[in-house]
C-alpha cells in the first residue's frame, strides 16, 4: 500500500479547464451590473462627496463583494442549478468550474472586497457589504431558498442593500433617505421574482424549491403580486413626497408606478388555464425596466439638483 496518496491517479481528479471567463461568469455579471448601478445612485444621491478615486474604489469593492456572494450561491446551489433550464449552463453544473474552485473564489473575493472597502473607504460601508454577502450566501441561499415560499421576500433585502452601502461609503452613516432607496428594491423583488416563478414553475418544481406558485398556488401568487405592486407604487414616489427630489422624479416615478400596477392587474386577471402566461412575462420584463428607470430618474434628479446648486452658489 502506498504511504502517500497520489492524487493524479485518483480517477475523480482532473486538471482544471476553467478559463478566466468561467470565473467571471461565477460573479453573476448581470446582477452585478444592477448592484453597481444602484450603489452608484446611492453615492450620488448622498448630500456630501468623497474623493472621486475613492468613489471608484468603493463601487469596485461593492461590485466584487456582490459577485463573491454570487459565486458562493453558485457553489451551494449547483445541485438545483443542474436541473433548471435557466441555470443548467452555469459554470459549476456544466462542469467548467469545480465546486471547490467556486467556494474558494467566493470566499477570497468576499474577504478582499470587504477589507478593501473598510481600509480605503470606511468601516460602516464595509460592515454593510459583509452583512449583504452573509445574508445572500447564508441566510437566503443556504436557509430560506429551500425552506419557505417567503424566500425571495426576506432574501430580497440582500439585493436592496447596495444603495445603502453606496450612501454609507460617502457619508459614513445611514439615513432615512437611503432606507427609502432600500425599500424600493425590497418591495420590487417579490413581484419581479414571482412573475418569473409563474411561468417557470415547472423548473422550480423539478428543483424542489418552494416558490410561491408551487406552494400557495398560482391564484394566490397573482393576488400577492398585485398587493406588492400596490405597496411599491407609492414607495417609488416617496422620495419626492418626502422632499428628497424634485417634481421631475415625482412625475416619472408616478408614471412608472401606475404602469407597474397596470401590468400586475393584467397578471391578476390572468386565466387559470393560461399556460403561455404573456401577462406574467410582460410584468417580468417591465419590472426590470421599472427598476432601471426609477433609479436612473433618481440619479438624473440628484445630478441636476447639484448642478443647479453649483450654478446658484
Amino acid at each position: 500500500m502506498a504511504l502517500v496518496h497520489n492524487r493524479f491517479e485518483d480517477q475523480t481528479f482532473r486538471m482544471s479547464e476553467a478559463t478566466a471567463g468561467d470565473f467571471f461568469a461565477l460573479l453573476k455579471p448581470r446582477v452585478m451590473s444592477l448592484v453597481v448601478f444602484t450603489a452608484f445612485v446611492g453615492m450620488v444621491a448622498a448630500p456630501v462627496t468623497i474623493n472621486p478615486f475613492l468613489a471608484v474604489v468603493a463601487i469596485l469593492a461593492i461590485a466584487i463583494g456582490a459577485g463573491a456572494s454570487g459565486a458562493l450561491n453558485m457553489w451551494y446551489d449547483a445541485d438545483i442549478d443542474a436541473v433548471m433550464t435557466r441555470t443548467v449552463n452555469r459554470p459549476v453544473p456544466s462542469g467548467k468550474v469545480t465546486p471547490h474552485e467556486a467556494l474558494t473564489f467566493g470566499l477570497v473575493l468576499s474577504v478582499l472586497s470587504v477589507m478593501t472597502l473598510g481600509v480605503l473607504v470606511n468601516w460602516l460601508s464595509a460592515a454593510l457589504l459583509a452583512f449583504t454577502i452573509f445574508f445572500y450566501a447564508v441566510v437566503y441561499t443556504m436557509w430560506l431558498k429551500r425552506w419557505t415560499p417567503q424566500n425571495i421576500v426576506i432574501g430580497g433585502a440582500a439585493g436592496a442593500l447596495p444603495p445603502m452601502i453606496g450612501w454609507a461609503a460617502v457619508t459614513g452613516a445611514i439615513s432615512f433617505e437611503s432606507v427609502v432607496l432600500f425599500l424600493i428594491t425590497f418591495l420590487w423583488t417579490p413581484p419581479h421574482f414571482w412573475a418569473l416563478a409563474l411561468f417557470k414553475s415547472q423548473d422550480y418544481e423539478r428543483a424542489g424549491i418552494p416558490m410561491m406558485p408551487n406552494v400557495a398556488g398560482e391564484a394566490s401568487t397573482r393576488r400577492q403580486i398585485f398587493a406588492y405592486s400596490l405597496l411599491l407604487a407609492p414607495v417609488g414616489v416617496a422620495p419626492w413626497l418626502l422632499g428628497y427630489t424634485t417634481i421631475g422624479y415625482g412625475v416619472v416615478s408616478l408614471a412608472l408606478g401606475i404602469g407597474f400596477v397596470w401590468y400586475a392587474w393584467k397578471v391578476l386577471r390572468m386565466s387559470d388555464s393560461d399556460r403561455v402566461m404573456k401577462p406574467a412575462k410582460a410584468l417580468f420584463g417591465y419590472s426590470l425596466l421599472y427598476l432601471f428607470v426609477i433609479f436612473a430618474a433618481y440619479l438624473a434628479d440628484s445630478v441636476i439638483e447639484r448642478v443647479f446648486a453649483l450654478g446658484g452658489a
Binding site: M15, S16, E17, A18, T19, A20, G21, F23
Partner: peptide, 18 residues
C-alpha cells in the same frame, strides 16, 4: 508528471493572465 492538454494549457494561461 501530468501532461496538460492544449485546452488545459490555454485555460491555465487565461487564469494566469487574469
Amino acid at each position: 508528471l501530468v501532461t496538460l492538454t492544449d485546452k488545459q494549457k490555454k485555460a491555465r494561461r487565461s487564469r494566469n493572465i487574469a
